[in-house]
Amino acid sequence: MSVSPSTAMRYQQSDPDVRLMLRVRDDDVEAFEELVQRYQSRLIRLMEHLGPKRDWADDMTQEVFLRVFRARKSYQPGAKFSTWLFTIAGNVARNATRTSGRRQEVSEVDTARTPSGSQPTALENVATDASGLMPVRLLEGSERAEMVRAAVQMLGERQREALLLSKFENLSYAEIADVMGLSTKAVKSLLSRARVNLKEILTPYIDQGSTPSSASEDANPKTLPEDTEPPA
């Protein structure tokens, strides 16, 4: 992708991470170390929710940094550094999910999937095991966190990515659109769906303490569908 000199200069002046990355391009290891330190925790958190498994987050994050370093010679400052970095992270996460899916398909040939393997049931187990049928609002903080994590995992992949970038990385709709390769309008719709779905999943735990399947059986599907981009 060709970037005009004026654009490159603008991002170089406004984004300190771009300047770091330009030093990395010149094989400056210290600049790379600084970039790793700046983004490692944010990327690990992103990967914990985007990746197929939480304990893969460290490896996936290192894979992201590795890709950044390998691509350093061709780096052109055409956007904020974080936009470029999160685009790579999204690709790594999707690859990992596909790899995991293939592995799971293979394992399913020999082992029938138990009902507890489905995400809503897992969420139900988290609620009942931890509280002894007590309302979620009475749960301890760590247990609530686990409940929310399970709810986030129930979102579609793109909803989840948009939600995480918006909530934790404070990216604007336009920046999220850049990272995910969507239109701004599509991101707006995606985030709206994510909020509505999250609210619908978590409402039973918040208000009644019952599992989503008993409180809102119809409203809580086993697997939430992926969003479709609305017409521009």
Binding site: I44, R45, L66, K167
Partner: peptide, 28 residues
């Protein structure tokens, strides 16, 4: 809509291993 969103704050902050940076550089 705001309440569901607010619950995301319950997610724990990520703890990074002290050696993560070092191992990443070694990996590279």
């Amino acid at each position: 809509l705001q309440s569901g969103w607010a619950l995301l704050d319950e997610l724990p902050s990520t703890t990074v291993d002290d050696r993560f940076t070092q191992t990443t550089l070694e990996l590279v």
